[in-house]
Write a protein that binds this DNA or RNA. Sequence first.
DNA 1: TAAATAAGCGCAATCACTAAACTTTTTCAT
DNA 2: ATGAAAAAGTTTAGTGATTGCGCTTATTTA
Lengths: 193, 193
Amino acid sequence: MTEPTGRRERKKAQTRKSLADAALELFLDRGYDQVSVKDVAEAADVSVTTLFKHFPSKEALVFDEEDDIESALVAAVRERAPGQSIPQALCAHILLTQDFAKDPRCAPFLRMVEDTPTLRDYSHRMWMRHETAVARAIAEETGAPEGDVTCAALARFALETRGLIQRHTDPRGAAEGAFALLEHGWAASRPGA
Amino acid sequence: MTEPTGRRERKKAQTRKSLADAALELFLDRGYDQVSVKDVAEAADVSVTTLFKHFPSKEALVFDEEDDIESALVAAVRERAPGQSIPQALCAHILLTQDFAKDPRCAPFLRMVEDTPTLRDYSHRMWMRHETAVARAIAEETGAPEGDVTCAALARFALETRGLIQRHTDPRGAAEGAFALLEHGWAASRPGA
DNA sequence: TAAATAAGCGCAATCACTAAACTTTTTCAT
DNA sequence: ATGAAAAAGTTTAGTGATTGCGCTTATTTA
């Protein structure tokens, strides 16, 4: 069921990729703030206007192709191992995504994001966008009402943990520490887990 | 011990106030995004460059005079009633600051902040800046080591709760629900409270 | 094949923000 | 008092992200 990709769509995707690639290379080379959108557009050999037809902002050039993160999070909650609590499942999933970061090819990228306030904030905002989806998944899993505060809180806190452990020397230990808090609180807040 | 206010400082404070006042009035009237810094500067009868000598950004025009919030938070942790847990103290303190919001004079202001993404984010960032201070206070209060993860997590989660309960019809109930999670988790994480 | 559609372009403008060089107080040590 | 340093303010000019407009050109489709 591959989309009947016409030449037009192919070219569009092509330009988009040129832009993302050019952007990444320039950003990693010179640093995000030292590269202007004009630089990126020129490197991809398109006009600045065209760049903004493909990406809504300069930041968006950095975080391309981040699609199924939300579904992965929801799946982590829904399809957790039997006997595993929701906080445990979320902890494991977050640690898993963190492991991506250990790939030395990603290291410069991640360092750039961490060192650039604009990007750090943007990334955090994007990540927290999944809060409501996760909250809903938790509520549905536990039979809690749609807008249950405890579920919403767990979702937010769990997602926030990612930023909390980011610059720790031992992310795994830190995550376990933070999630222990949630784990116990969660268990105590709903007697029939 | 009132500062020996010279004429210079008085005039400076004066222009600053003119700017903040003009900004608030215009923002409330037309909406934040519909007012440019140029508009504000003209309303206060100063140049745009002068405006930026007083305020580091357009957003900063909105959140003026927010000084002792951090010390109040730290104090809430340190000087809590005997027998009151730290999460309880933070919950109470946050609810207290929320009560400010019930003043009908503040309502339009708060609605503006909530309805303007830029401002909501800025406000959230400012608020979360106090995380490390609160974390340190908690660590010191409990004798935990300086960078203890559980303390850091509690600080972050507690502060995050404010945003969580913001648009709830019953903020008090929501806060109590969210803090119940932290309360239980915290109690379980440190046996000798 | 013509008309509709969509990509891309150049241009001009807006808006937040900064740098530089210059004018006008205010302050303060002599 | 007075003259120079320090600080507030101004003008001007610029950068950089982002948007709107009107135009060309390529692709699709009826």
